[in-house]
Amino acid sequence: MNPLKNFLFQLQEISLLIWRAFAGLFRRPRYIGETIRQMDLIGVGSLPIVLLTGFFTGGVLILQTYPTLAYYGGQSEAGRAVATSLIRELGPVLSALMVSGRIGSAISAELGSMVVSQQIDAMRALGTDPIRKLVAPRMIALIFMLPLLTVAADIFGIIGGSVVASVIFNQETNVFITSVRAGITAEDIIGGIIKPLFFGLIIGSISCYKGLSTTGGTVGVGRSTTNAVVLASIWVIVFDFFISKGLQTVLDIGRI
C-alpha cells in the first residue's frame, strides 16, 4: 500500500472507530463502571506527572523571561506572560503530551496484547462488542479527564512561576498574582479547556486504533505502542496549531 493510500485508510478506520464508540453509547449495556475506572486510572493516575510538568514549566518560563522583561522594565508583567502562555498553549499541549506518553502507550499495549492473545476474539465470541466495552470507556475518560488535568497543570504552572519569581527574583507574590489576573481573560480559559477535549479524542482514538490493529505477536505489540505514542504526540501538536487558529477566529483571542 502506498503511503497516501495507507494514510487515508488509517484515517477512515480511526473515524469509523470514533463513530462506533460514540454510536454505542446510546445502547445497552452501558459500561459506566468501566468508564469510571478508566477515569480514575487516566485522571487521578496521571495527576502527579502533569502537576510536576506544570509546576516546572511555569518555573522555567519565569526563569527565562524575567531577565528580558526586567531589561525593558516590564518585570511587573511577568505573571501575565507566564499565565497567558501556560493557559493558551503550554498547559494543554504539555498535559496532552504527558498523557499520550503515559496513557496512550498503556492503552495500545493493553489492547494490542489482548489482540495477540486472542482475548479480543474471545470477547466478541462471548457476545461483547470490544469497541463498546474497551474503546468507548477509554475515549470518554480521556475526553473528560484531559481538560481537568490541563486546568490542574495551569494552576501548578502559575504557582511554579510565582515561586521562582519570589525566590530567585525577589518579586512580591501579590504583584505576580495581580499581573496574572490582569493578563488572562475568560476566552483564554475557555480556549484552554476546549483544546484538551480534542486532544483527548486524538490520543484515545489513535492509541485504541493502534492497539486493536496489532499484528505479529509480541513484537507487534511493541511496534503499535511506539506508533501510538509518536502519532498521538505529532497529531496533538499539528492539531494544536489549527485549533488555536480556529479559536482565535471564534473567540477573538490573541489577535493583534
Binding site: Q118, D121, A125, L126, T128
Partner: peptide, 29 residues
C-alpha cells in the same frame, strides 16, 4: 453467537479477571 461456544488455542482467558469472573463473563454481561 449466544448459541455458540468457542474454545481458543491457548484458552484466551482475560488476564485481568479471575477464573470465576472469566467463566461468569457472559452472564455478567
Amino acid at each position: 453467537r449466544q448459541k455458540m461456544g468457542m474454545v481458543f488455542q491457548e484458552g484466551a482467558l482475560f488476564d485481568s479477571l479471575s477464573v470465576y469472573e472469566n467463566v461468569a463473563y457472559r452472564l455478567h454481561e
